[in-house]
Design a protein around this nucleic acid. Structure first.
Length: 411
DNA sequence: CCTCCACCGGAAAGCCGGGTCA
DNA sequence: TGACCCGGCTTTCCGGTGGAGG
């Protein structure tokens, strides 16, 4: 045990990954299987850019993991390459509106990319817009702005889109066209009709992949990602089938494959099997819950923690009243406000909606009517997430001791 | 058949931080 | 700047209820 140098040990592990990054969403492959049609329509819409004309704006729809972003980035790169060769100035700028999520930041980021020195906060929006216009119009060029997850931006008002969609009329040398990507069809309802009609001059829908198509995608990536002979037969079809079940999400399929590989690797096994995939499914579900718990409001965390304590004390099922009693004493211990039972009841319903717990309303006759609650999550993982919060760490020391006393410890 | 438990869950109003408008 | 509004969170109030036990 003492002699095992940690690095030597790691190097002795069987090699699984040739290149792990090809399995990540950020990777744009050399070619995209089963997206030929979409690639061609986007390319033909953007073609005028190479001829010094303004391409139509495009709105792209499709569920998550249908290849929207990858396709647009792919076509964008090809366009820039072609532009370089033909000496036509075409540039594609990609923005993810989930990250760059305000009107101001969209304009400022664009201006910055185009070489203007704009602070990330502080200036009036109009001024940033002027700077941006100026930067774009400096030379004869075509700028294509890709707004990914555009629905996130629209929720905060559509002024930017309005301005950007009309920017061409204020330019003398350059041309701008927009590509909006969204997985939410409803967001159109929030748009000003003028913006909508200008933005959706062309619309392209990305259908979900089916299982066979997903297999092709996975096979293509697996080739690059893994060493030969690492993948057990049947692993790819299994991942594909699982992901196809969830509206053909290629992202999910790739995650499954990558995580399966990581599990095999950390188990020091040289082959990825279907069992690893099953394990990966479990891990992803767990991660999903953990993520949901992390972003929970504090009060909900305490409520959930109360349930975990009840669960760990040997009770598989419990009622709103019991949870509330534990919750209240927890709050007192750490000096947090105690919400009313009515409110806690709502928080419990929310946790139910999120799939973190399982609750049904039952009647126990003489003994009243209440919700019967069961925990439905990897308890230990969730507990750690909650206790990791610096405010709740102190709860750790009460863990075992207080439960017995707290149920009857009033005032 | 009635009672009555231990909550459920709707309605409405209060509170609060942020944003808007004159 | 202050008046005002908005939306999210929370409390208050309260009528409603399935079924074990009498």
């Amino acid at each position: 045990m003492i002699d095992s140098n940690i690095f030597e040990k790691m190097l002795r592990k069987p090699k699984i990954f040739k290149n792990r990054d090809v399995l990540r969403h950020s990777y744009t492959p050399e070619y995209l299987p089963h997206r030929k049609e979409q690639i061609e329509s986007i390319a033909s819409i953007l073609l005028p850019a190479l001829q010094g004309e303004t391409p139509s704006n495009i709105l792209i729809y499709g569920k998550t993991g249908t290849g929207k972003t990858a396709t647009v980035k792919f076509v964008g790169r090809q366009l820039e390459d072609a532009g370089k060769k033909m000496d036509a100035h075409c540039y594609v700028h990609y923005l993810n509106c989930e990250i760059i999520d305000t009107q101001y930041r969209v304009l400022a980021t664009l201006a910055k990319v185009l070489g203007k020195n704009v602070p990330m906060t502080g200036w009036p929006t109009d001024q940033v817009y002027e700077e941006l216009k100026d930067a774009i119009d400096r030379k004869d060029q075509t700028i294509i702005i890709v707004l990914d997850e555009i629905d996130k931006l629209v929720r905060k008002g559509d002024d930017v889109l309005y301005n950007l969609s009309r920017i061409n009329s204020e330019l003398n040398n350059a041309r701008v066209s927009l590509i909006g990507i969204s997985n939410d069809l409803k967001f159109k309802n929030f748009l000003d009709p003028r913006v909508l009609s200008s933005l959706s001059e062309e619309e392209i829908v990305f259908p979900p992949y089916n299982a066979t198509q997903l297999e092709d995608i996975l096979a293509q990536r697996a080739e690059l990602a893994f060493y030969d002979g690492v993948l057990d037969e049947g692993v790819i079809p299994y991942c594909a089938a699982l992901a196809a079940h969830e509206h053909g999400d290629a992202r999910k399929a790739l995650d499954l494959l990558r995580i399966s590989g990581e599990i095999a690797e950390s188990n020091q096994e040289g082959k990825i099997t279907r069992e690893h995939v099953r394990e990966a499914v479990r891990k992803m579900e767990c991660d999903h819950v953990v993520e949901a718990v992390k972003t929970l409001p504090n009060q909900s965390k305490i409520v959930l923690y109360a349930m975990i304590l009840l669960n760990n004390s040997g009770k598989r099922k419990f009622t709103t009243g019991e949870v509330f009693a534990v919750y209240r004493s927890l709050c007192r211990k750490i000096g947090m406000d105690v919400l009313t039972q009515r409110r806690v009841s709502d928080l419990i319903s929310e946790l139910d909606m999120l799939g973190i717990i399982n609750s049904i309303v039952i009647s126990k006759g003489r003994y009243g009517r209440t919700r019967e609650i069961k925990l439905d999550v990897p308890v230990d993982a969730v507990k750690e997430v909650i206790l990791d919060d610096y405010r709740f760490g102190i709860l750790r020391k009460y863990e075992g001791s207080f439960l017995n006393s707290s149920l009857d410890h009033f005032e």
